Amino acid sequence: MAGNDVKLLGSWPSTFVMRPRIALNIKSVGYDFLEEQLSSRSDVLLRSNPVYKKIPVLM
């Protein structure tokens, strides 16, 4: 799945992340899934969602 323009930042067990993954798969949109650790926030998450600092983030 490398090289896609769409990126989904989330955590695997989150139901809020599963919804966009299902929608992207139904629409046959290629995406890269970037797994985020909930214990520590990455720089990508802080740049993409600076106000709430929560997942999921669709970039």
Rank of each mutant, 00 (worst) to 15 (best):
M1S: 13
M1I: 07
M1P: 07
A2D: 15
G3E: 07
G3T: 11
N4K: 13
N4V: 09
N4Q: 15
D5H: 13
D5R: 15
D5P: 05
D5M: 14
V6C: 02
V6R: 05
V6G: 06
V6D: 05
V6L: 09
K7S: 03
K7Y: 04
L8W: 10
L8A: 02
L8R: 03
L8N: 01
L8Q: 06
L9D: 05
G10I: 01
S11M: 09
S11I: 02
W12D: 00
W12M: 01
W12C: 00
P13W: 00
S14R: 02
S14T: 02
S14Q: 05
S14G: 05
T15K: 09
F16I: 01
F16T: 01
F16M: 02
V17N: 05
M18R: 14
M18E: 14
M18C: 13
M18L: 10
R19P: 03
R19K: 07
P20A: 01
P20D: 00
P20H: 01
R21I: 13
R21A: 04
I22W: 11
I22S: 12
A23P: 08
A23I: 07
A23G: 00
A23C: 12
A23R: 10
A23L: 13
N25E: 14
N25R: 15
I26D: 12
I26T: 13
I26N: 12
K27V: 06
K27T: 07
K27G: 10
S28F: 08
S28Q: 15
V29W: 00
G30H: 10
Y31P: 08
Y31K: 07
Y31R: 06
Y31L: 00
D32V: 08
D32N: 15
F33W: 10
F33I: 01
F33E: 01
F33K: 11
F33R: 03
L34G: 04
L34P: 09
E35M: 07
E35T: 12
E35N: 10
E36I: 02
E36W: 05
E36G: 03
Q37M: 09
Q37R: 11
Q37C: 15
Q37D: 14
L38Q: 06
L38S: 05
L38M: 08
S39F: 14
S39E: 08
S39R: 13
S40N: 15
R41H: 15
R41L: 10
S42T: 11
S42N: 08
S42C: 09
S42M: 08
D43K: 15
V44S: 06
V44I: 12
L45R: 10
L45W: 07
L45S: 05
L45C: 09
R47Y: 15
R47H: 15
S48V: 06
S48A: 14
S48R: 06
N49I: 03
N49G: 04
N49D: 04
N49L: 05
N49A: 07
P50N: 08
Y52E: 10
Y52G: 04
Y52K: 02
K53I: 09
K53C: 06
K53T: 06
K53N: 13
K53F: 07
K54I: 03
K54S: 00
I55K: 02
P56L: 00
P56S: 00
V57L: 02
L58E: 04
L58D: 07
L58Q: 03
M59Q: 14
M59V: 13
M59E: 08
